[in-house]
Design a protein around this nucleic acid. Structure first.
Lengths: 340, 340
DNA sequence: TTGAAAGCGCTAACAA
DNA sequence: TTGTTAGCGCTTTCAA
């Protein structure tokens, strides 16, 4: 059977095409009886409007663009797949579809925006991995393209926009508090160099909690580049101190796994001799028993979509964008912070 | 500046709209001089045809649908993200875009097909995770919707279609051969119950290699459900044998990680005392040093797109679908198969 | 080889 | 409250 069109539905319901369209888009304009009749035909025929035609007419595609990140070390970033899944899954319940694209860096990604906007009339974008000096947000804002970021605008130069993020400080605060609770006093922090703002946010949670407990030791505040091997090397130095830390809070699971490697290499027992907490709750953490702060990806996706709807429904770009939304990570405790 | 349309390009080049369209779609019909002139204007104005209009007219969207899998245990399936990335990245170079959707099981996924086909005129689908009694392939084939699967049609009832898969047997064959080479004689296989055809494929590679080496011990052929804990339990039994295996080949990394857990729990040294090989080369394997057979995701994505083009360009459904393509996995050797 | 006319399926503006 | 007209940007006839 041929796919029904508006025309066919209209004929069947003995109304004009326009009335059918109104039933779908502006039901309040249609007399209830007419509406009921038309709706019955729509249901009977299983009619669904063709999006290409709607898009052509309205310039609204009901499509949002999202980048799929290139696979890197496979530790921290993998959880972005959860975000993408949650986003897709929730979006499709609202009649939105997620169009994927791949890009290596900001310039490249902006090029994709241009194409997607011109070719497919995308309605909006969801960005991940915001960073200092992000060229993408500036580009989008300048052209008044609706977008929401998962990740806050780091750095002063960033344009104002709607964003959702996870409160990194809250995660490390929870981790550090737990470590204090189970008796640790010498708690180190393995963070990124200071050019990564997200890292500082996480560091602050640790520093504040330690300070509040009257603990301070500069030597336990360590900055290393991302990567397991850097985490391992830094841990070696820390454990060589005369008074080594008994616990380490890490800015990512990658670094935490490096800590793990060095601790076990020395014959020390993770959890009992040295406690470790990571960040991101990667699958690997779950497997080996690494405690970690989990980002609530499902909530993050939901919040992004909510903000996006607010942005899209606004008659004109609001002077102050909706949001932001800051979500609390959840500390997942495993063997790496168990004393027995 | 307003977005240029065909109309504008035509006016600027002093030709009809149709000629511009021909330059783009049937250049051979246009006189070279005219073509050059039109092309210059197209380049100058940065003109790109609007896809919604093209789709409306031609019923071709240049869109392919792909499911994003729900995150499960985060060990084996994560590598599908690599496939999705490769697919997206290669597709966009060819002017195709990947539209994402989420679905829990076959019925649900078929519902998505219907919607995507009706609403967005998708040109084709790429399926992953084919299984015995796959309702999806039958549905698509019946409606003559173009599709390619990453994963072969398991089971006799499956419809014929184009597919790409990784040769599981080749992976376990390579693994087993390597273990024999480094001196192992008692090599066990941890596989799935027999209802999972992909598992049998991988088992065969191990069995054949052992048989060729004149080795056979039924007790070393073990079938357990997927999951780390099952792998652990099965390993416990194997290691309790009077003559326990010195090496284990596993159908997935999840099971291999279970083996790892049990081996270390007993104070045995992975690699030195017991060798372990997994399958899928998950990020976790890389981190802990588990040898594993890696699926060439980039090649798989490329092959899927190639087959898809063949299917799409065929004037009518071919009696014998193009393909199949069987790719060799690559054995990645790490500490878990090193003797020192 | 190029141009003119028609129409894909839908919605916005207007008229009845 | 409903119907009519026009047209979104493109490609497919068909005629010149």
């Amino acid at each position: 059977m041929a796919r029904p069109t508006l025309e066919i539905v209209a004929a069947r319901a003995a109304v004009s095409r326009q009335t059918v369209s109104n039933v779908l888009n502006s039901p309040h304009l249609v007399r209830p009886e007419t509406r009921t009749r038309v709706e019955a035909v729509i249901a009977e025929l299983g009619y669904r409007p063709n999006r290409a035609a709607q898009t052509l007419k309205t310039r609204r595609s009901q499509l949002v663009g999202a980048r799929i990140e290139p696979p890197r070390d496979g530790i921290n970033r993998v959880v972005l797949t959860h975000f993408l899944h949650a986003l897709t899954s929730r979006a499709q319940l609202q009649g939105l579809r997620v169009m994927l694209f791949a890009a290596d860096e900001d310039r490249d990604e902006i090029g994709q925006y241009e194409q997607l906007l011109e070719d497919h009339d995308l309605d909006a974008f969801v960005l991940t991995d915001t960073h200092v000096g992000d060229a993408r947000t500036a580009w989008l804002a300048e052209r008044q393209v609706p977008f929401v970021t998962f990740g806050r605008p780091w750095g002063a130069l960033s344009a104002y926009h709607s964003w959702v993020d996870v409160d990194g400080g809250a995660g490390t605060r929870a981790a550090t508090t737990h470590l204090l609770d189970i008796g640790h006093r010498r708690i180190a922090f393995l963070g990124w160099p200071s050019d990564a703002a997200a890292g500082d946010d996480r560091r602050d949670g640790w520093a504040q909690t330690c300070a509040a407990a009257g603990i301070h030791d500069e030597r336990l505040d360590v900055r290393v580049p991302e990567g397991l091997e850097h985490g391992r090397a830094a841990t070696a130095k820390l454990l060589d101190l005369a008074d080594p830390p008994t616990a380490l809070v890490c800015v990512t699971d990658s670094l935490a796994l490096g800590v793990w490697a060095e601790v076990t290499r020395r014959g020390l027992r993770v959890g009992r001799d040295v406690a470790i907490v990571g960040f991101d709750d990667s699958p690997t953490a779950a497997v080996i028993g690494l405690s970690s702060a989990a980002q609530p990806m499902d909530q993050a996706a939901a919040a992004c979509l909510e903000l996006m709807h607010t942005v899209l429904d606004a008659p004109q770009p609001a002077p102050t964008p909706p949001g932001p939304v800051l979500l609390a990570p959840q500390l997942v405790l495993r063997a790496s912070t168990a004393r027995d």
